[in-house]
Protein backbone atom coordinates (compact mmCIF):
# COMPACT_ATOMS: atom_id res chain seq x y z
CA UNK A 1 0.00 0.00 0.00
CA UNK A 2 1.62 3.22 -1.08
CA UNK A 3 1.14 5.92 1.52
CA UNK A 4 0.60 8.90 -0.75
CA UNK A 5 -2.59 8.98 -2.81
CA UNK A 6 -1.35 9.33 -6.36
CA UNK A 7 -3.94 11.83 -7.48
CA UNK A 8 -2.55 14.87 -9.23
CA UNK A 9 -3.73 18.10 -7.60
CA UNK A 10 -6.30 19.61 -9.89
CA UNK A 11 -5.39 23.03 -11.26
CA UNK A 12 -7.48 26.09 -10.75
CA UNK A 13 -9.17 24.92 -7.56
CA UNK A 14 -10.07 28.50 -6.66
CA UNK A 15 -11.73 29.18 -10.00
CA UNK A 16 -13.60 25.87 -9.83
CA UNK A 17 -14.92 26.74 -6.39
CA UNK A 18 -16.16 30.14 -7.56
CA UNK A 19 -17.81 28.46 -10.56
CA UNK A 20 -19.48 25.97 -8.19
CA UNK A 21 -20.78 28.78 -5.97
CA UNK A 22 -22.11 30.69 -8.98
CA UNK A 23 -23.90 27.55 -10.18
CA UNK A 24 -25.46 27.22 -6.72
CA UNK A 25 -26.93 30.69 -7.19
CA UNK A 26 -28.18 30.22 -10.72
CA UNK A 27 -29.51 26.68 -10.29
CA UNK A 28 -32.40 27.76 -8.05
CA UNK A 29 -34.87 30.49 -8.90
CA UNK A 30 -34.29 32.72 -5.90
CA UNK A 31 -31.87 35.08 -7.65
CA UNK A 32 -34.57 35.89 -10.19
CA UNK A 33 -37.12 36.73 -7.50
CA UNK A 34 -34.58 38.96 -5.80
CA UNK A 35 -33.82 40.69 -9.08
CA UNK A 36 -37.52 41.42 -9.59
CA UNK A 37 -37.58 42.76 -6.02
CA UNK A 38 -34.57 44.96 -6.77
CA UNK A 39 -36.24 46.49 -9.81
CA UNK A 40 -39.48 47.16 -7.91
CA UNK A 41 -37.64 48.65 -4.94
CA UNK A 42 -35.56 50.96 -7.10
CA UNK A 43 -38.63 51.87 -9.15
CA UNK A 44 -40.52 52.91 -6.03
CA UNK A 45 -37.48 54.87 -4.78
CA UNK A 46 -37.04 56.79 -8.03
CA UNK A 47 -40.74 57.55 -8.38
CA UNK A 48 -40.94 58.70 -4.74
CA UNK A 49 -38.03 61.13 -5.15
CA UNK A 50 -39.49 62.56 -8.35
CA UNK A 51 -43.01 62.89 -6.96
CA UNK A 52 -41.93 64.46 -3.64
CA UNK A 53 -43.43 67.92 -3.78
CA UNK A 54 -40.89 70.73 -3.69
CA UNK A 55 -41.46 72.75 -0.54
CA UNK A 56 -39.55 75.84 0.36
CA UNK A 57 -37.25 75.19 3.32
CA UNK A 58 -37.46 71.39 2.92
CA UNK A 59 -34.51 69.62 4.59
CA UNK A 60 -34.30 67.27 1.60
CA UNK A 61 -32.27 68.64 -1.31
CA UNK A 62 -34.73 69.23 -4.17
CA UNK A 63 -34.30 68.32 -7.80
CA UNK A 64 -33.58 71.94 -8.54
CA UNK A 65 -30.18 71.47 -6.87
CA UNK A 66 -27.21 69.45 -8.05
CA UNK A 67 -27.26 67.53 -4.73
CA UNK A 68 -30.94 66.68 -5.26
CA UNK A 69 -30.19 65.35 -8.73
CA UNK A 70 -27.37 63.17 -7.39
CA UNK A 71 -29.74 61.86 -4.70
CA UNK A 72 -32.24 60.90 -7.39
CA UNK A 73 -29.69 58.87 -9.32
CA UNK A 74 -28.32 57.39 -6.10
CA UNK A 75 -31.70 55.61 -5.81
CA UNK A 76 -30.41 53.35 -8.58
CA UNK A 77 -28.02 51.85 -5.99
CA UNK A 78 -30.96 50.33 -4.08
CA UNK A 79 -29.97 46.81 -5.08
CA UNK A 80 -27.70 46.69 -2.02
CA UNK A 81 -30.63 45.68 0.22
CA UNK A 82 -31.27 42.61 -1.92
CA UNK A 83 -27.57 41.93 -2.39
CA UNK A 84 -26.87 41.70 1.34
CA UNK A 85 -29.91 39.48 2.02
CA UNK A 86 -29.05 37.22 -0.91
CA UNK A 87 -25.49 36.95 0.41
CA UNK A 88 -26.74 35.99 3.86
CA UNK A 89 -29.04 33.37 2.34
CA UNK A 90 -26.07 32.01 0.41
CA UNK A 91 -24.71 30.68 3.68
CA UNK A 92 -27.81 30.16 5.85
CA UNK A 93 -29.45 28.07 3.11
CA UNK A 94 -26.48 25.72 3.21
CA UNK A 95 -27.02 25.30 6.93
CA UNK A 96 -30.78 25.06 6.67
CA UNK A 97 -30.78 22.50 3.88
CA UNK A 98 -27.69 20.77 5.27
CA UNK A 99 -25.73 21.10 2.06
CA UNK A 100 -22.69 22.46 3.89
CA UNK A 101 -21.58 18.87 4.53
CA UNK A 102 -21.35 18.21 0.79
CA UNK A 103 -19.65 21.55 0.26
CA UNK A 104 -16.90 20.84 2.80
CA UNK A 105 -16.53 17.22 1.65
CA UNK A 106 -15.88 18.46 -1.89
CA UNK A 107 -13.34 21.01 -0.62
CA UNK A 108 -12.17 20.53 2.97
CA UNK A 109 -10.01 23.66 2.82
CA UNK A 110 -12.76 25.76 4.32
CA UNK A 111 -11.00 29.09 3.84
CA UNK A 112 -11.02 28.50 0.11
CA UNK A 113 -14.70 27.72 0.18
CA UNK A 114 -15.42 30.90 2.12
CA UNK A 115 -13.31 33.05 -0.20
CA UNK A 116 -14.98 31.45 -3.24
CA UNK A 117 -18.44 32.02 -1.80
CA UNK A 118 -17.71 35.67 -1.04
CA UNK A 119 -16.17 36.15 -4.47
CA UNK A 120 -19.17 34.57 -6.17
CA UNK A 121 -21.63 36.68 -4.20
CA UNK A 122 -19.50 39.74 -4.90
CA UNK A 123 -19.98 39.03 -8.60
CA UNK A 124 -23.71 38.45 -8.15
CA UNK A 125 -23.98 41.66 -6.10
CA UNK A 126 -22.18 43.59 -8.82
CA UNK A 127 -24.59 42.24 -11.44
CA UNK A 128 -27.54 43.27 -9.27
CA UNK A 129 -25.94 46.69 -8.86
CA UNK A 130 -25.52 47.01 -12.60
CA UNK A 131 -29.09 45.94 -13.38
CA UNK A 132 -30.33 48.38 -10.73
CA UNK A 133 -28.31 51.23 -12.23
CA UNK A 134 -29.49 50.58 -15.77
CA UNK A 135 -33.12 50.34 -14.71
CA UNK A 136 -32.98 53.18 -12.16
CA UNK A 137 -31.23 55.59 -14.52
CA UNK A 138 -33.59 54.76 -17.39
CA UNK A 139 -36.64 55.30 -15.18
CA UNK A 140 -35.26 58.54 -13.69
CA UNK A 141 -34.37 59.97 -17.09
CA UNK A 142 -37.78 58.99 -18.44
CA UNK A 143 -39.67 60.65 -15.56
CA UNK A 144 -37.51 63.75 -15.11
CA UNK A 145 -39.31 65.82 -17.76
CA UNK A 146 -42.43 65.95 -15.54
CA UNK A 147 -40.54 67.96 -12.90
CA UNK A 148 -38.53 71.15 -12.69
CA UNK A 149 -34.97 70.00 -12.26
CA UNK A 150 -31.34 71.02 -12.38
CA UNK A 151 -29.07 69.82 -15.16
CA UNK A 152 -28.42 66.05 -15.31
CA UNK A 153 -24.93 65.56 -13.76
CA UNK A 154 -23.60 63.28 -16.48
CA UNK A 155 -20.07 62.99 -15.09
CA UNK A 156 -21.34 62.13 -11.63
CA UNK A 157 -23.66 59.51 -13.14
CA UNK A 158 -20.70 57.38 -14.16
CA UNK A 159 -19.17 57.68 -10.71
CA UNK A 160 -22.48 56.91 -8.97
CA UNK A 161 -22.93 53.88 -11.23
CA UNK A 162 -19.48 52.64 -10.32
CA UNK A 163 -20.22 53.27 -6.65
CA UNK A 164 -23.50 51.34 -6.90
CA UNK A 165 -21.85 48.33 -8.53
CA UNK A 166 -19.00 48.30 -6.01
CA UNK A 167 -21.33 48.97 -3.07
CA UNK A 168 -23.72 46.15 -4.03
CA UNK A 169 -20.81 43.74 -4.52
CA UNK A 170 -19.41 44.57 -1.08
CA UNK A 171 -22.84 44.42 0.57
CA UNK A 172 -23.32 40.93 -0.87
CA UNK A 173 -19.96 39.92 0.63
CA UNK A 174 -21.04 41.43 3.95
CA UNK A 175 -24.24 39.40 3.67
CA UNK A 176 -22.30 36.13 3.29
CA UNK A 177 -20.26 37.09 6.36
CA UNK A 178 -23.31 37.99 8.47
CA UNK A 179 -25.09 34.79 7.41
CA UNK A 180 -22.03 32.76 8.38
CA UNK A 181 -21.75 34.45 11.76
CA UNK A 182 -25.46 34.28 12.64
CA UNK A 183 -26.15 30.87 11.02
CA UNK A 184 -29.90 31.07 11.58
CA UNK A 185 -31.65 32.12 8.39
CA UNK A 186 -34.60 33.96 9.89
CA UNK A 187 -32.43 35.72 12.47
CA UNK A 188 -29.98 36.80 9.77
CA UNK A 189 -32.66 38.18 7.44
CA UNK A 190 -34.48 39.99 10.25
CA UNK A 191 -31.33 41.48 11.68
CA UNK A 192 -30.13 42.66 8.29
CA UNK A 193 -33.45 44.23 7.35
CA UNK A 194 -33.94 45.91 10.72
CA UNK A 195 -30.37 47.19 10.66
CA UNK A 196 -30.20 48.33 7.05
CA UNK A 197 -33.69 49.74 6.64
CA UNK A 198 -34.28 51.06 10.16
CA UNK A 199 -31.43 51.45 12.64
CA UNK A 200 -28.70 52.37 10.21
CA UNK A 201 -31.01 54.40 8.00
CA UNK A 202 -32.00 56.54 11.02
CA UNK A 203 -28.41 56.98 12.25
CA UNK A 204 -27.22 57.87 8.74
CA UNK A 205 -30.07 60.36 8.31
CA UNK A 206 -30.07 62.02 11.72
CA UNK A 207 -26.55 61.51 13.02
CA UNK A 208 -24.57 61.75 9.79
CA UNK A 209 -21.34 62.52 11.66
CA UNK A 210 -21.53 58.99 13.08
CA UNK A 211 -23.59 57.40 10.38
CA UNK A 212 -21.14 58.16 7.61
CA UNK A 213 -18.75 55.62 9.14
CA UNK A 214 -21.36 52.83 9.08
CA UNK A 215 -21.64 50.58 6.01
CA UNK A 216 -24.87 52.30 4.94
CA UNK A 217 -23.32 55.75 5.44
CA UNK A 218 -20.26 54.72 3.46
CA UNK A 219 -22.61 53.50 0.73
CA UNK A 220 -24.25 56.95 0.72
CA UNK A 221 -20.72 58.30 0.30
CA UNK A 222 -19.92 56.20 -2.78
CA UNK A 223 -23.35 57.07 -4.20
CA UNK A 224 -22.54 60.77 -3.64
CA UNK A 225 -25.75 61.33 -1.68
CA UNK A 226 -26.48 64.37 0.45
CA UNK A 227 -28.39 63.95 3.70
CA UNK A 228 -31.05 66.05 5.45
CA UNK A 229 -30.14 69.70 5.72
CA UNK A 230 -27.28 69.19 3.30
CA UNK A 231 -25.39 66.72 5.54
CA UNK A 232 -22.24 65.48 3.81
CA UNK A 233 -20.98 61.92 3.86
CA UNK A 234 -17.43 60.68 3.30
CA UNK A 235 -15.74 61.49 0.01
CA UNK A 236 -16.12 58.73 -2.57
CA UNK A 237 -12.68 57.14 -2.19
CA UNK A 238 -12.70 57.24 1.58
CA UNK A 239 -16.23 55.80 1.63
CA UNK A 240 -15.17 53.03 -0.76
CA UNK A 241 -12.26 52.15 1.54
CA UNK A 242 -14.54 52.07 4.59
CA UNK A 243 -16.92 49.70 2.76
CA UNK A 244 -14.02 47.55 1.66
CA UNK A 245 -12.78 47.51 5.24
CA UNK A 246 -16.15 46.29 6.58
CA UNK A 247 -16.37 43.56 3.92
CA UNK A 248 -12.80 42.44 4.58
CA UNK A 249 -13.13 42.50 8.38
CA UNK A 250 -16.46 40.67 8.56
CA UNK A 251 -15.39 38.33 5.78
CA UNK A 252 -12.20 37.40 7.64
CA UNK A 253 -14.10 36.93 10.90
CA UNK A 254 -16.63 34.68 9.15
CA UNK A 255 -13.90 32.60 7.52
CA UNK A 256 -12.07 32.31 10.83
CA UNK A 257 -15.10 31.05 12.77
CA UNK A 258 -15.81 28.52 10.03
CA UNK A 259 -12.31 27.10 10.09
CA UNK A 260 -12.72 24.58 12.90
CA UNK A 261 -16.43 24.59 13.60
CA UNK A 262 -18.01 21.13 13.67
CA UNK A 263 -20.36 20.46 10.78
CA UNK A 264 -23.02 18.14 12.14
Amino acid sequence: MSAAPDVAPVRGARQRLVAAELLKVTSTRMWLGFLVGTVLYIGVGVVAVILTPTQPGSPVPTLETAAGMRNLFAQAGGAYVFAIVLGALGMTQELRHQTLTSTFLAEPRRNRVMVAKMTAYGVVGAVYGLVGVVFGYALALALLPIKEHAEVPWTALWQIAGGAVLGCALFAVLGVAVGTLLRNQIAAILLILVWVLLVEALVVAFLPAWGKWLPGGALSGVLQSTGFGGAEYLPVWQAALVLLGYAAAFGALAALTTQRRDVT
Binding site: L17, A20, S27, Q98, T99, T103
Partner: peptide, 25 residues
Protein backbone atom coordinates in the same frame (compact mmCIF):
# COMPACT_ATOMS: atom_id res chain seq x y z
CA UNK B 1 -22.93 9.85 1.83
CA UNK B 2 -23.72 10.98 5.34
CA UNK B 3 -26.91 11.24 7.35
CA UNK B 4 -28.18 14.76 7.90
CA UNK B 5 -26.88 15.79 4.52
CA UNK B 6 -29.42 17.55 2.44
CA UNK B 7 -30.29 19.05 -0.85
CA UNK B 8 -31.72 22.40 -1.80
CA UNK B 9 -35.30 21.45 -2.66
CA UNK B 10 -35.40 23.86 -5.59
CA UNK B 11 -32.29 22.51 -7.28
CA UNK B 12 -32.40 19.62 -9.75
CA UNK B 13 -30.46 16.45 -9.01
CA UNK B 14 -28.33 17.10 -12.06
CA UNK B 15 -27.44 20.62 -10.93
CA UNK B 16 -26.71 19.36 -7.40
CA UNK B 17 -24.17 16.95 -8.87
CA UNK B 18 -22.82 19.59 -11.26
CA UNK B 19 -22.15 21.90 -8.31
CA UNK B 20 -20.31 19.09 -6.53
CA UNK B 21 -18.33 18.12 -9.60
CA UNK B 22 -17.14 21.70 -10.02
CA UNK B 23 -16.32 22.09 -6.35
CA UNK B 24 -14.42 18.83 -6.14
CA UNK B 25 -12.67 18.95 -9.52
Amino acid sequence: ALEATGFHPGRSARDHLRVLSRASG
